[in-house]
Design a protein around this nucleic acid. Sequence first.
DNA 1: CTAGCGGAACAAAACGTTTTGGTCGAGAAA
DNA 2: TTTCTCGACCAAAACGTTTTGTTCCGCTAG
Lengths: 346, 346
Amino acid sequence: MLLVSTSGRRVTIHDVARNAGVSITTVSHALNGKGVVAEATRQRVLDAASSLGYSADAIARGLRSNRLGILGLVIRPLDTLDSYLPVGVDYFVRFAGAAAVAALDRGFGLMLVRDPTTGSVPGIALAVDGFIISDPVGNDPVIGLLKRNGIPLVSVGRDVERPDFTDWIGTGTVADAAEVFAHLLDRGARRVALVAGTDANAWNADSEIAYRSWCAGRGQKAIVYREDERSGESGGRIVAEAMLQSGEPVPDGIYCLTGRHASGLQARLWESGITIPGDVMIVAGSDSEQTRSSTPAITSVDLSPEETATAAVNFLLSRLDGDSRSGPPSVKNVLRARESTDRPVV
Amino acid sequence: MLLVSTSGRRVTIHDVARNAGVSITTVSHALNGKGVVAEATRQRVLDAASSLGYSADAIARGLRSNRLGILGLVIRPLDTLDSYLPVGVDYFVRFAGAAAVAALDRGFGLMLVRDPTTGSVPGIALAVDGFIISDPVGNDPVIGLLKRNGIPLVSVGRDVERPDFTDWIGTGTVADAAEVFAHLLDRGARRVALVAGTDANAWNADSEIAYRSWCAGRGQKAIVYREDERSGESGGRIVAEAMLQSGEPVPDGIYCLTGRHASGLQARLWESGITIPGDVMIVAGSDSEQTRSSTPAITSVDLSPEETATAAVNFLLSRLDGDSRSGPPSVKNVLRARESTDRPVV
DNA sequence: CTAGCGGAACAAAACGTTTTGGTCGAGAAA
DNA sequence: TTTCTCGACCAAAACGTTTTGTTCCGCTAG
């Protein structure tokens, strides 16, 4: 005997119950392994469920158990723009994509959300199970909003002005910087400059801190340029211009965080007769299509977006499971050496 | 008098009702403009709601009205890869980002979903209000699955093997091709080749159709190369190699759909002493960081991801509103002329 | 023989909405 | 006066689950 669902409607737990000749309670228990059901009954329920193609309605389940099965993702650097123009797109699409995959693998969906503090947020945005905030700015209002609403969250990169918030994943910024400086030093650089962005996030802040302390340790004067992330290659050219006009000798090693800046910077220096890596070596802080395809190709830090995203998802889910002990995972990035620093080690 | 919510719990419609001294029915009606409520009462309810900071629970609403407030997005070309490696990242991140923004603006969230036909899908994926499928493959199983489940969907680019499915947004593929060929012809190309990808989507298929019919119209022999999208720049080099080895003269105009192929193709030709645009002109079918930053910069079709995504969201939402008349919007792309075709018009 | 226990099942409550189908008056039409 | 209509409001059902509390029954310990 096979009673099909009552009508053309979605097949519900009631249909399964009727089919298996038990109550809906028993069905729920059998399917979720909750109560105590006889093995024979359990089998009967399972059979009925699968033959009917039943799967529990996620919304109804969400209503009852306050678990929707969705994670929210806010990529803050993309919020500072009017449109989602390609600023370090390479990194962010890989990050978002990998986060989606990791979430899916764990049975969750991933919802892309724009800054939920501006204007009206779809109510659904605050109904998700937890949030990942990528690269929060200082004292980030998004973190404030979510905390106020009691929504679990985890960030990628710390909030530099919120020391009490510790649920963030380090992105190896300081270690990366150290590796870059060592790389440049090994190849003979003696006057290393830093080109940072202007967003108030941990990447910029911590890179600069690492740089200054490295300078201090070597007795070198710190040379720091800052340029808006959004300005892209032309911003890199502006920095190059500033270096050329500064009256000081051009640095012989440059750590330029943003890939697009690095590309423009290199192009401009090249045009003014400076050879790379002969006269100046350049390292970009974020590997991208651009640093790979520049001529010469630019040595870059591969920020491991896939690993970072997966770690972020796992970290958030462990928090959701009530595990508040486990510390944040740490991700190891790797420096991709290319022609822009292709000099013999001294 | 201000009665606060009963406890530390979420503030519900009951709290608002109690505060305003009306029934929850009236609150619901007042807030949604549904029934008929006296203006004074409506005000009272609105005040109570805002003073309590009430907003309806999206999940409960979803359960009752079968509207979750989420749109699903599946970017098919990203599914053919193991990881979300940067294949035309430029286009897709802009597309996904713009879709998220457009959805948010209309009060919806955007959920990123991987191919829901493989493995177990989170139930929530099938609970969303509608789907956007970007660049479906022929007879796409994802479209099949969604249709079977009665979930509204819209695709970007048609399913080439599903002529009965008409809810797709054209991406101007044929018009783009025509413009490209005219551009090349105007600048003296007489032997134009097409380099397509291998994915079974409309972009590849329709571009080739347009190309062959253009060839037929001019009595030119069609020269078509196909190369896996995933192979990136090295794939472009492989095609260049094939052209050089073919025994035939190298084409004097090349329409290469994938940006990364175009970049590698150009580099390889250049290395073998062929000048661009002098000997060969190249046009890429998809504008990207790469085509912009190649040397020489490559003339490309700007696929207008922002406009396309916005159109897709609007189209889907109009379908959700039950408007089945309005045809799909059409998006106009623009050809960005650069150095790779910088020859005088003959 | 009876009280107690525990396995197996179920009825009903709960989650927070929206919607259906009322009730209750007051004024208009007959 | 009676009947209708309509504005204003509300009680209860419904959405599809999960969870709580209960019942039933057979068995064992006393």
